[in-house]
Design a protein around this nucleic acid. Structure first.
Lengths: 210, 210
DNA sequence: GTCTATAAGGAGATAGAC
DNA sequence: GTCTATCTCCTTATAGAC
């Protein structure tokens, strides 16, 4: 995560360690109480510093939010796209879909705070920052829709509206973040398997013999 | 909606018309900008009054929020439960599930603002008010899980974990509210039909010939 | 039922010392 | 890189006139 930060770079701090700590900590607070309900003073207190010191690391509260959201959206796309786009794979579409869903569920489980914030606090971003995030999001949705369509063409899937089904699958997975908590009835890896099964059922051309 | 308001009643205004207008208007603003980002002054301005006048109609901003959330959650349960609980129906489980999903999708489409707020601003409620809402929500989830289990027992459904599948179906539908907008590629009644199909695919015991 | 005026406090952000 | 002190503005909510 703290790799590859050679962008135009914010005018103040650009280094990683402390900055990343603060982002993680703010993500958790945003998740628990909501972006607008958490003040810079509260974040500073959790980081054992004064509010003014936060402005050495971040230009504004919104930059803090963007960092939490953007990194997660970008990471998921980077992790998952190869699975969708590789053509010369020896896996069939059904197995690749299952892998994709498992990977997505595990990513959500491993980054609950950031996913929660990414899912619910987009509105707090300025239009330009919002666009930067949604570029990744649209690319992911589009890739999944294309993949489902390819599965239909290959005779493995049956799906009247790949775009809609892609959204339905993603919404199903993202909803998990609303109620999942470690230590519950089902662990995240069990959930990954079950959601993969559910997704396959949504598109499989006929009943599947495992 | 404005019927049956003979509860203990808030100490100030208890009548309906203006109050309901303000709730609807606040719901839209909460949806667009978020509960904490919308001040009482902004709500008052939209209602063509001063902030202080709002406190004649509502004891607090939180009471306004509760009204938006609670009515919607309660209404959905009241509308949908009969479909799940009636036993002597001549419809099979598959058709009843399809009806349930259609009803839910249409309800979301018809109450977008309120559903959005109910889905995302629960945290802003005090613990007692939150509980009052979640009683309805849990009842609905439980009824669906039981219904799926009954469908399995009847040999119509195949479903290894009805509780999880109930959550997955609900999350899939509620996700719709994130991206649905009237005038888009698909209208709400088309979406209702397609989501009903998807839900049936998730649980049907074998491929379904319509 | 709506108003004006205001209380009491919190917000994001900045200046400038160290 | 962190501090103290402060600016400016906005927040929810109330008091009391009309």
């Amino acid at each position: 995560m703290p790799a590859a930060e050679q962008q135009p770079a914010p005018p103040r701090a650009r280094s990683g360690a402390r900055r990343a700590e603060i982002v993680a900590l703010a993500s958790r607070m945003f998740r628990e109480r909501g972006y607008h309900a958490v003040g810079m003073r509260a974040i500073a207190e959790a980081a054992n510093m004064q509010a003014a010191s936060l402005y050495h690391h971040f230009r504004s509260k919104e930059e803090l939010l963007l960092e939490a959201i953007f990194v997660v959206d970008r990471d998921l796309v980077v992790d998952q796209l190869p699975l969708l786009e590789s053509e010369d794979d020896d896996l069939n579409h059904r197995e690749r879909l299952a892998q994709l869903v498992r990977g997505h569920v595990l990513h959500v489980g491993a980054n609950r705070d950031a996913w929660w914030v990414a899912g619910r606090e987009l509105r707090a971003l300025s239009p330009e920052k919002l666009d930067a995030v949604q570029v990744y999001r649209r690319r992911y949705q589009h890739a999944i829709a294309e993949f489902l369509a390819a599965g239909v063409a290959a005779g493995e899937f049956q799906c009247t509206d790949p775009r809609l089904t892609a959204l339905a699958v993603l919404d199903m997975i993202n909803g998990l973040n609303e109620w999942f908590a470690p230590g519950g009835r089902l662990g995240i890896s069990e959930l990954a398997d079950r959601y993969a099964d559910l997704a396959v059922r949504l598109v499989a051309a006929s009943t599947v013999a495992a």
